[in-house]
Lab assay of single mutants.
Amino acid sequence: VYKEIAITNGCINRMSKEELRAKLSEFKLETRGVKDVLKKRLKNYYKKQK
């Protein structure tokens, strides 16, 4: 499980701001904020899904 999260986090870290926004809107999450906030939001979402 932790390895999956680590791989997902690595992918998220390599995403551009536009990619992050697209992914967040896909999951109907808030898309406003600076890049670091968007990354954190997406990581938290994936963590809750596990």
Rank of each mutant, 00 (worst) to 15 (best):
residue 15 M to P: 00
residue 31 T to I: 11
residue 49 Q to A: 10
residue 45 Y to V: 02
residue 6 A to D: 09
residue 38 L to C: 02
residue 34 V to N: 15
residue 7 I to M: 14
residue 43 K to M: 05
residue 9 N to V: 12
residue 8 T to S: 14
residue 47 K to E: 06
residue 10 G to T: 11
residue 30 E to K: 06
residue 19 E to T: 09
residue 36 D to K: 15
residue 40 K to G: 03
residue 2 Y to N: 15
residue 3 K to M: 08
residue 18 E to F: 14
residue 42 L to K: 00
residue 2 Y to I: 14
residue 14 R to D: 07
residue 42 L to I: 04
residue 7 I to N: 10
residue 1 V to T: 11
residue 21 R to T: 05
residue 39 K to P: 00
residue 20 L to G: 01
residue 38 L to M: 07
residue 12 I to C: 03
residue 48 K to I: 04
residue 50 K to I: 10
residue 1 V to G: 14
residue 1 V to Q: 06
residue 23 K to Q: 11
residue 24 L to D: 00
residue 22 A to I: 13
residue 19 E to K: 07
residue 8 T to E: 08
residue 23 K to L: 10
residue 24 L to W: 01
residue 7 I to E: 10
residue 36 D to F: 08
residue 21 R to K: 15
residue 22 A to F: 11
residue 6 A to P: 14
residue 35 K to I: 05
residue 46 Y to N: 08
residue 4 E to W: 08
residue 49 Q to K: 12
residue 39 K to W: 00
residue 35 K to A: 07
residue 8 T to Y: 05
residue 18 E to C: 15
residue 20 L to D: 00
residue 48 K to L: 08
residue 17 K to T: 06
residue 34 V to W: 07
residue 39 K to T: 05
residue 30 E to D: 15
residue 50 K to C: 08
residue 50 K to R: 12
residue 27 F to M: 14
residue 19 E to S: 08
residue 46 Y to C: 15
residue 3 K to A: 12
residue 28 K to M: 09
residue 5 I to H: 14
residue 2 Y to R: 12
residue 9 N to F: 12
residue 38 L to V: 03
residue 27 F to T: 05
residue 18 E to T: 15
residue 45 Y to M: 04
residue 36 D to L: 09
residue 39 K to M: 05
residue 4 E to L: 07
residue 10 G to W: 06
residue 37 V to K: 15
residue 45 Y to T: 00
residue 2 Y to G: 15
residue 37 V to L: 05
residue 37 V to M: 09
residue 13 N to F: 01
residue 28 K to C: 11
residue 15 M to S: 00
residue 41 R to T: 00
residue 22 A to E: 13
residue 20 L to A: 01
residue 6 A to I: 14
residue 16 S to Q: 05
residue 30 E to Y: 06
residue 28 K to P: 00
residue 29 L to E: 03
residue 48 K to E: 09
residue 27 F to K: 12
residue 41 R to E: 00
residue 26 E to K: 08
residue 43 K to S: 04
residue 29 L to A: 02
residue 19 E to L: 05
residue 26 E to D: 11
residue 3 K to G: 13
residue 22 A to V: 13
residue 49 Q to R: 09
residue 46 Y to L: 15
residue 19 E to H: 07
residue 5 I to K: 13
residue 37 V to C: 09
residue 6 A to S: 12
residue 7 I to D: 10
residue 11 C to F: 11
residue 28 K to V: 02
residue 36 D to R: 14
residue 33 G to N: 00
residue 36 D to H: 14
residue 40 K to N: 07
residue 13 N to P: 01
residue 34 V to A: 10
residue 7 I to V: 12
residue 4 E to F: 09
residue 38 L to D: 06
residue 29 L to P: 00
residue 27 F to W: 05
residue 44 N to S: 12
residue 35 K to R: 05
residue 45 Y to Q: 02
residue 24 L to N: 00
residue 5 I to A: 14
residue 33 G to M: 00
residue 1 V to A: 14
residue 48 K to P: 02
residue 3 K to P: 12
residue 22 A to P: 01
residue 1 V to R: 06
residue 46 Y to M: 15
residue 33 G to H: 02
residue 32 R to N: 06
residue 15 M to H: 02
residue 47 K to N: 10
residue 31 T to W: 10
residue 6 A to H: 14
residue 3 K to Y: 08
residue 3 K to S: 13
residue 6 A to E: 12
residue 46 Y to P: 00
residue 15 M to W: 02
residue 4 E to C: 10
residue 45 Y to D: 01
residue 35 K to N: 03
residue 5 I to V: 13
residue 50 K to P: 09
residue 50 K to L: 13
residue 37 V to G: 04
residue 10 G to S: 11
residue 11 C to N: 13
residue 33 G to Y: 01
